[in-house]
């Protein structure tokens, strides 16, 4: 060990830095923390944009949401695991969309003989697409030993 390291260790505070605790906390919370951060940024940008137009501030946001300014401060620091209710309230007050849910419907055009479906299949609901009766003739005999 060098003399310099010895001196540095003697000079260094006995109290450890809390950086490691902070870092581990950020890592543990990373799944929601990033979303919270992104939402906080959107809120801040929106307030900055609206302030000259309608006087919006963090304090006013708190009042209109019916929450404390301290709570809004936590929200804009990205420290809150926000509920859907809170996000919806923020969206209402600021008139913005913070989270968009994709509707999840896929439309596929399928040409069918019977155009009663309008040539459209929606995967999320049953649609009477087309039917065609197949005449299998009278020589058909149901197999034995099956359950269907």
């Amino acid at each position: 060990m060098t003399k310099s390291l010895d001196n540095i260790k003697q000079m260094a505070s006995q109290e450890p830095s809390n950086w490691i605790d902070d870092a581990k906390r950020r890592q543990t919370n990373k799944t929601w923390a990033k979303r919270s951060f992104q939402i906080a940024v959107r809120i801040l940008r929106e307030i900055r944009k609206q302030k000259p137009q309608n006087g919006m501030t963090q304090k006013r946001l708190a009042v209109e949401m019916g929450v404390s300014p301290q709570y809004i401060n936590k929200v804009i620091k990205g420290e809150e695991n926000l509920t859907l209710e809170t996000i919806a309230k923020i969206e209402d007050v600021l008139g913005v969309t913070l989270i968009e849910i994709l509707k999840g419907e896929n439309s596929i055009n399928v040409p069918v003989e019977n155009q009663s479906s309008g040539g459209y299949i929606n995967r999320n609901r049953s649609v009477h697409i087309a039917e065609k009766t197949i005449d299998i003739g009278s020589t058909y005999a149901k197999p034995t030993g099956t359950n269907g």
Binding site: S17, W19, D22, F37, K77
Partner: peptide, 19 residues
């Protein structure tokens, strides 16, 4: 109140500071 490493990583995670 904090050493430089703690102070900086807290700042870089702070939306208000970065904005």
């Amino acid at each position: 109140s904090d050493d430089e490493l703690r102070r900086l990583f807290n700042l870089w995670a702070d939306p208000e500071y970065l904005e």
